[in-house]
Design a protein around this nucleic acid. Structure first.
Length: 469
RNA sequence: GUGGUUGUAGCUCAGUUGGUUAGAGCGCCUGAUUGUGGUUCAGGAGGUCGUCGGUUCGAACCCGAUCUUCCACCCCA
């Protein structure tokens, strides 16, 4: 075999895996549709400028850029030569970082989709005249990130997004939380937590500490509390330039655990001096209160001020879902963005959305053995091919079976019986029909049940009746 | 991007301090069985030991580079 392969972090999906993946996609799609969301798709590739600068510094680094094609690329290479005449002396060490970024900028004009939210914002701006707002859209497509692969992390993976744009009603947050619960419960997960936070609360915390500009550093650091412990978090905060007095002001947050009402009452006091912080708290409270009317199935809901996901464009609620049964990063995320379309030229368009990470959900379900057994079945009825005459006799029957909604196939050549039976066996086909000379004469076909091995002579009408019943 | 790890038949893996012709199980193909799969028996095919380079009389084994796998960090679904 030749040394062939596929790019790092990307995968083939064989039929048995696809059956399971589709089970997940179908469950999610069904729930989205049930809640009135309409599907759209956007291209795999966007203009590079559409994506850059939307996901923070780290995000920009992980975007797959697409090179220019043909003469345009040649032009850029010639341009580089002018910029650095002494190309022979170039080494990795003395390479000017500014040149590196302008190479990316000039050599690539496109980029692969990094998530579904930013392309959606672009879509909304571009199609604003055709859209009736508030717009509920869902989108199930792959995204690409140039990250190093590891457990639950791929370079190509599917996101399943549902967003509502054009209203700032908190009812949407409530509905989206409900969808998290509905879908994951339906998929058989028994123990998972929906974590809820609010960007305004985080802003408030940074304000109370007196370092509003350090909001990202502060939240990223306290996000690691459970993982690395309080001492290490304090160390990191100090490294990021916070004074001891400021760190001491953060300390009360380390104790924030447990009952939502308790957490909120502590935060109310803590955020007393911050108007934004109070606003955020009111939002959190309202969401919780509205949710009381709609009980959740399997999900646990938790206020988590250390939740710091997607800070770059989220302005209100922030969501994240983790499984408590399997050690895996977050399996879902989401949040509210008050002004994502603003950067594309459409103001005052608040949106909120969620995203299911289908590949991580798959890994979790696989580890927990949650996939139903029956998913892998393909063909129901198999016709053995005995030759030209028999084939002509069977063809209308094959058609009849399919019309009756029974998936059926006829072996494409008159191969040895043993080979055909083996094929049916390996494809896990439960029923086989044999039509040879004697069957054609009598009209009584040989019908074999593969699982038990028993077989009987039946008319085709009777066979269909059995399969449908 | 940082650190570690892995690579031998289609798959899962053995392989002695570096020494003849690199093995096993499963799978695959053929036959026992010209109208019967899944069981059994007999036989067979299949490997540039990830790739390139180096050390050596001699390399699957030692060294270097590179690609790939998996894992952790960063970050994230």
């Amino acid at each position: 075999m030749k040394n062939i392969g596929i790019p790092k972090g990307m995968r083939d999906f064989s039929p048995s895996v696809m059956a399971r993946r589709n089970y997940i996609f179908n469950t999610i799609r069904k729930s989205f549709e049930l809640h009135g969301f309409e599907q759209i798709e956007t291209p795999a590739m966007e203009n590079r400028e559409t994506l850059t600068g939307k996901y923070g510094e780290e995000g920009d680094r992980l975007i797959f850029n697409v090179m220019q094609r043909g003469d345009k690329l040649i032009d850029e290479i010639l341009w580089l030569k002018e910029l650095d005449t002494d190309t022979d002396k170039l080494t990795k060490e003395n390479f000017n970082p500014a040149v590196k970024s302008s190479i990316i900028e000039n050599f690539s004009d496109g980029a692969l989709r990094y998530d579904l939210t930013v392309p959606f914002a672009r879509y909304v701006v571009q199609h604003q005249n055709e859209i009736t707002f508030p717009f509920r859209r869902f989108q199930i497509q792959p995204v690409w990130r140039a990250d190093r692969p590891q457990k639950g992390r791929y370079r190509e993976f599917y996101q399943c997004d549902a967003d509502i744009i054009g209203t700032d009603s908190l009812l949407n947050e409530v509905e989206l939380i409900k969808i998290f619960d509905e879908v994951l419960s339906e998929l058989g997960m028994q123990d998972f937590t929906i974590k809820l936070n609010n960007r305004k609360v985080l802003s408030g915390i940074a304000e109370v500490i007196g370092r509003p500009e350090k909001i990202v550093d502060i939240t990223v650091a306290i996000d690691k509390l459970e993982k690395i412990g309080q001492a290490k978090v304090e160390e990191e905060l100090s490294e990021k330039g916070l004074t001891e007095i400021e760190i001491n002001k953060i300390k009360p947050l380390f104790q924030l655990k447990g009952d939502s009402k308790l957490v909120i009452s502590i935060l109310k006091e803590y955020l007393e001096g911050s108007k934004v912080g109070q606003e955020g708290l009111v939002e959190v409270e309202e969401i919780l209160q509205t949710l009381q009317a709609i009980p959740l199935q399997k999900a646990k809901l938790e206020i988590d001020v250390t939740l710091a996901r997607g800070l770059d464009y989220y302005t209100g609620a922030i969501f994240e879902v983790v499984s408590n049964e399997v050690k895996m990063g977050s399996i879902c995320g989401g949040g509210r963005y008050a002004d994502l379309t603003g950067i594309f030229g459409l103001k005052d368009m608040s949106g909120v959305g969620i995203s299911f990470g289908a590949d991580r959900i798959y890994d979790v379900m696989e580890e927990l053995g949650l996939f139903p057994e029956s998913l892998s079945q393909s063909t129901q009825l198999f016709f053995v091919n005995f030759g030209a005459k028999e084939q002509a006799y069977v063809l209308p029957l094959l058609q009849q079976a399919r019309e009756a909604g029974i998936s059926a196939e006829l072996y494409p050549e008159a191969a040895k019986m043993k080979k055909q039976m083996k094929y049916a066996n390996q494809k896990n086909i439960p029923y086989v029909v044999m039509v040879g000379e004697s069957e054609m004469q009598s009209g009584e076909l040989t019908f074999k049940k593969m699982q038990s091995g028993e077989q009987e002579k039946l008319s085709f009408a009777e066979i269909l009746k059995q399969l449908k019943g």
